[in-house]
Computed example of a mutant assay.
Amino acid sequence: MSKNKGARIIITLECCCKNLMNTNKRRKGLFRYTSTKNRKNTPGRIELMKFCPACNQHEKFKEIK
Rank of each mutant, 00 (worst) to 15 (best):
1 M>G: 14
1 M>N: 10
2 S>L: 12
4 N>A: 11
4 N>I: 10
5 K>M: 03
6 G>L: 05
6 G>T: 03
7 A>L: 10
7 A>W: 07
7 A>T: 14
7 A>Y: 07
8 R>C: 05
9 I>P: 00
9 I>L: 09
9 I>V: 14
9 I>M: 05
11 I>W: 03
13 L>G: 01
13 L>Q: 02
16 C>T: 15
16 C>G: 15
19 N>D: 14
19 N>L: 11
20 L>P: 00
20 L>W: 06
22 N>I: 08
22 N>G: 00
23 T>W: 00
23 T>K: 13
25 K>D: 06
26 R>Q: 11
27 R>Y: 11
28 K>E: 10
28 K>T: 11
28 K>L: 11
28 K>N: 12
29 G>K: 08
29 G>S: 08
32 R>N: 12
33 Y>H: 09
34 T>Q: 13
35 S>G: 06
35 S>Y: 03
36 T>Y: 01
38 N>G: 02
39 R>L: 14
39 R>S: 08
40 K>T: 06
41 N>S: 11
41 N>I: 11
41 N>L: 13
43 P>M: 05
43 P>R: 04
43 P>E: 06
44 G>L: 04
44 G>V: 07
46 I>F: 02
46 I>G: 01
48 L>A: 09
48 L>T: 03
48 L>S: 00
49 M>V: 13
49 M>Q: 04
50 K>E: 13
50 K>R: 14
50 K>A: 14
50 K>L: 15
51 F>C: 03
52 C>W: 00
52 C>V: 12
53 P>W: 00
53 P>C: 05
55 C>Q: 01
55 C>P: 01
56 N>C: 10
58 H>C: 10
58 H>G: 04
58 H>D: 10
58 H>E: 08
59 E>N: 12
59 E>V: 11
60 K>V: 15
60 K>G: 00
60 K>Y: 07
61 F>R: 00
61 F>E: 09
62 K>G: 07
62 K>H: 11
64 I>Q: 04
64 I>Y: 10
64 I>C: 06
